[in-house]
């Protein structure tokens, strides 16, 4: 599977599929420049669900209104700029007052042992991180809560 095909499926799954259970992912940018990086895809969401009148009232009464995002970055499968990517996202979350983000790193091939270790040992709490090997359809995620939670929503290979 090509990276673009996977990202199209991921975008569709976030905006119209299972992603709805986490947040209302409603706006998607491709080739989005941020800092010195250009993310392949950047999808923003709010956790307050929409709907008809009663659903909106219920959501307004029960759900906090904060923003979240999903980033996809495929240009660095060796994770040589991993720290820079995380710093850029953390800075964005802080400046724009987003609560958390997912970072998906898709690659048409296997990841190096070093790259796997870097993700598995990442301790970022507000950024869920996952490596997606599009050849073997394998995913490697960090140990944080958001990293574990995101795997079922980014597993969209069919």
């Amino acid at each position: 599977m090509k990276v673009k095909d996977y990202l199209l499926k991921l975008e569709d799954n976030l905006m119209l599929g299972g992603g709805k259970w986490v947040a209302d992912f409603n706006e998607s940018f491709w080739d989005y420049p941020m800092g010195d990086l250009v993310f392949d895809m950047f999808v923003t969401a709010t956790v307050r669900a929409k709907g008809f009148f009663l659903s909106r009232v219920a959501a307004w009464l029960t759900t906090p209104n904060y923003y979240v995002a999903c980033f996809a970055y495929s240009k660095d499968p060796e994770l040589k700029r991993f720290h820079e990517v995380l710093t850029t996202i953390s800075k964005f979350l802080k400046e724009e007052e987003f609560a958390w983000a997912w970072l998906v790193i898709p690659h048409e091939g296997s990841f190096s042992r070093k790259a796997r270790a870097m993700v598995e040992h990442s301790d970022s709490k507000e950024i869920g991180i996952a490596l997606v090997d599009l050849d073997s359809l394998e995913m490697i995620n960090a140990a944080s809560y958001w990293s574990r939670r995101m795997t079922r929503f980014i597993k969209c290979f069919k």
Partner: peptide, 16 residues
């Protein structure tokens, strides 16, 4: 300078 795909709900999209 920038383009996004925006979901208005109920499967309706606009290009923003």
């Amino acid at each position: 300078s920038r383009v996004s795909l925006f979901h208005e709900g109920y499967g309706r999209f606009v290009v923003r």
